[in-house]
Design a protein around this nucleic acid. Structure first.
Lengths: 237, 237
DNA sequence: AGTGTGAATACTGTATACAGTTTTATGATT
DNA sequence: AATCATAAAACTGTATACAGTATTCACACT
């Protein structure tokens, strides 16, 4: 009979595609590729030392996640979101993160509490370092909350929405003003999870996430334009 | 200069993949392929008269949408959801559909109202016909609401969640008991959109969608089992 | 110099080919 | 007859090849 279901402990029989998805998504979230940049299949295939097929498959998965956009027979581009798009995504994010926060309390473990607290303190003590790293910490904290919600579909949905905002640098970590610094908000969210806050999950999440989106010139100047050799400094590996 | 952005009126330069995605998704939602069924790339390629590549790409897009599941190096299977999975998806659906319903009122047009009303009446007069068709009408009505919400990301998210429930026949249309018949609920939702209800969007959506999920034997008996020639009557075209 | 036209190039979408793994079938052993 | 081992077949993941379209470049024309 053997194993009908692959045992959870089995070595994950990974494929090139999953590695490429992770690498490309991280590169887009970290803004090494910027909105509007063209993603050339052959070039990426050369960079990663694989054929075009797994690159194509990875790009199509990212397209489904909203990070890149396909123009048929023209190619894949890092997606461009308007201010309005960001607002829409963010309002949806608020609803979903509030729901997640609501569910967290029931699934709280000592281990999870410890991890969240460590992240909060790491963020509070953040005074030097790049904006990218601040974003990475921010995302990691929220992902931990999504995971703690215990609803994997909620988690997956948020993972398909929020990275779009990060890819657009929709959050700013430059103002170290103590009151406004987004990283300082996270302890309040943790307090809600721990039941040590008098705010409802909705209130806490709204006050954390309700921001306006006004795009600076975040986009590649080549966006959707006739394709030219793009800046080569956005490469990696 | 020409067109920097493909004009909306342009003939959609479609690909084989998008046709396959639509065909396969419809087949899964209509339960011509059932949860647990194996989807063989070569076989589908032959059926549709194309090569394996566009079939693979279509299946991977459906995987991202949760309708099929990949077992690395084993193949794609129509996804199987446990009762618990259905509960989680449904609770998320309620939150999202309530949000959509809330947003609809602001975007209401005479044209949209006419379309929704037509669908409601079509459903109320539904007395004969298959369960599949009832499900199709149900889904069409809800999709119209999602679209009317004006938030394309909300729409896309719901389109990635709700079809999973339909693929599992999680809704039953067999009880023609007037009070319980789900198709009869839709007028109440429309009333909320029109502002003619004293229910809040949340209340209306909760009472419409809060159901329990208990799976009958909805699954293919071959689910995840050593692969055998599967029943050939689930083919099409 | 700027603009328009056509050839050359590059790229995507799809088909075919190949390698390694998984599944199935076959046959030996008890 | 049932179980285990081995060989054959089938399938996925990936690479390569090809066709058609989009883009770029070069050159003529004004």
């Amino acid at each position: 009979m053997s194993d009908l279901i692959t045992p959870a402990s089995a070595p994950p029989p990974s494929t090139l595609k999953v590695h490429l998805v992770a690498a490309l998504r991280d590169a887009i979230i970290a803004r090494r590729y910027k909105p509007g940049d063209r993603l050339n299949e052959s070039q990426l295939a050369r960079q990663y030392g694989v054929s075009r097929i797994p690159v194509r498959e990875a790009l199509q998965q990212l397209q489904e996640q909203g990070l890149v956009m396909n123009h048929p027979r023209r190619g894949m581009f890092v997606n461009i979101l308007s201010d309005d798009d960001c607002q829409k995504i963010n309002s949806l994010r608020i609803v979903l993160e509030a729901e997640a926060l609501k569910l967290c309390h029931a699934h709280l473990t000592a281990e999870a509490e410890k991890k969240l607290l460590a992240l909060v303190e790491q963020m509070e003590n953040w005074h030097t370092g790049s904006e990218i790293d601040a974003a990475a910490l921010d995302l990691e904290f929220h992902r931990a909350l999504w995971n703690l919600s215990g609803n994997s579909y909620l988690e997956k949905t948020l993972n398909a929405l929020v990275p779009m905002l990060f890819a657009h640098q929709a959050l700013e970590y430059t103002s170290h003003n103590e009151k406004l610094w987004p990283l300082n908000h996270h302890r309040k969210l943790l307090d809600v999870v721990l039941g040590k806050s008098n705010q409802t999950p909705e209130e806490a999440m709204v006050s954390h996430l309700r921001v306006r989106y006004t795009n600076p010139e975040r986009y590649s100047s080549l966006a959707y334009a006739p394709l030219k050799k793009q800046s080569t400094d956005s490469q990696e590996h």
